[in-house]
């Protein structure tokens, strides 16, 4: 499989001496839906900044669809659409003009720029706002405008830096389904996010970056298989005592009808339910205590590779 993005030994030291990237290697395959995760200040935005030319790298190489940014950055940039974390459009410009102007920067003829503007404003449900100044849009509309603008030149690689931050649930879900459609149509997508559920739901592959280093780079499914313990919250149909225990399972009673149970890798849920049934305790509902990826993520950050058992 050829690569959409190939990063080798990428490093970045800012003028204040802060070493944001310490020689990272990263491969993103064409057509992938890839998540770049990490805590604040880990180096996610710096990595994205280098790829789209807003940050000058200190060392290493970056190739976008085989084009080395040191040899032909304009050629590489043609393939990239970027949705930054912060709103960065001219608030006084009209929504339609923002898209048409961006298309012009990529050399699209005016007729095609108009056509694409219409297409993406429709797809992001902003067509009705085309003659409105960007400052009059709601927060969610501004997010969608940023995505429409990034797509107007139809890039092969779309990079989104926390696209759903501060977005309500309904809009987040509609953005997810839009991004999935886009990916299904062949666009490679790289996503940074703090919502682990988002990464688990959308992405096939994942890299976790911490303190300027990649500490995990694998498939989401493979990563989830590393889980040694998964914690479930059970709502019970009858009260239990505060010192309630189940043989073979670590439990915690949070209130008389709510039980947290840690299930080790290899233990089955059937066994757990059998034990509860024997004790005459019906389970009315059940959920993960935290997002599964979140448990792994926290474990990885806290303990390094060896702490993957969340």
């Amino acid at each position: 499989m050829s690569l959409a993005l190939r990063i080798r030994q990428l490093s970045k030291t800012y003028s204040n001496g802060l070493s944001a990237l310490k020689g990272i290697d990263l491969d993103v395959e064409q057509g992938d839906f890839f998540a770049l995760l990490g805590p604040n200040g880990a180096g996610k935005s710096t990595t994205i900044g280098v790829v789209c030319s807003l940050v000058r790298k200190s060392g290493g190489t970056v190739e976008v669809f085989g084009t080395d940014i040191d040899l032909d950055f304009p050629g590489a940039k043609r393939h990239i659409g970027v949705v930054p974390q912060e709103f960065n459009f001219n608030n006084f410009e009209k929504v339609g003009d923002i898209l048409a102007t961006q298309a012009g920067y990529y050399g699209l003829p005016r007729a095609l720029a108009r056509e694409r503007t219409e297409k993406y404003l429709h797809r992001l449900e902003l067509w009705g706002k085309r003659d409105h100044a960007a400052r009059t849009l709601s927060g969610g509309m501004k997010r969608r405008l940023m995505i429409a603008r990034a797509l107007v030149h139809e890039p092969r690689l779309l990079i989104l830096d926390e696209p759903t931050a501060g977005v309500d649930i309904e809009l987040r879900r509609s953005m997810w389904s839009f991004l999935q459609e886009l990916n299904a149509a062949g666009t490679t997508i790289i996503l940074t996010t703090h919502y682990l559920e988002e990464a688990e739901r959308l992405c096939r592959n994942i890299a976790i970056i911490d303190d300027g280093r990649i500490i995990e780079n694998t498939g989401v499914k493979q990563l989830l298989r590393q889980m040694q313990v998964e914690t479930f919250v059970l709502d019970l149909g009858a009260d239990v005592a505060s010192d309630f225990a189940l043989e073979g399972y670590a439990t915690r009673v949070t209130d008389p009808r709510t039980l947290e149970v840690a299930v080790q890798k290899g233990q089955s849920l059937n066994g757990l339910f059998e034990l509860l049934t024997e004790r005459g305790l019906p389970v009315t509902s059940m959920r993960n205590k935290a997002n599964r990826l979140e448990e792994l993520f926290v474990g990885l950050l806290q303990h390094g590779k060896g702490g993957a058992a969340a």
Binding site: S53, L54, I80, F89, Q102, Y105, Y106
Partner: peptide
């Protein structure tokens, strides 16, 4: 920051 629109483009 909307100069970034131009800086990320191949112009």
């Amino acid at each position: 920051h909307h100069i970034e629109e131009l800086l990320v483009s191949p112009t």
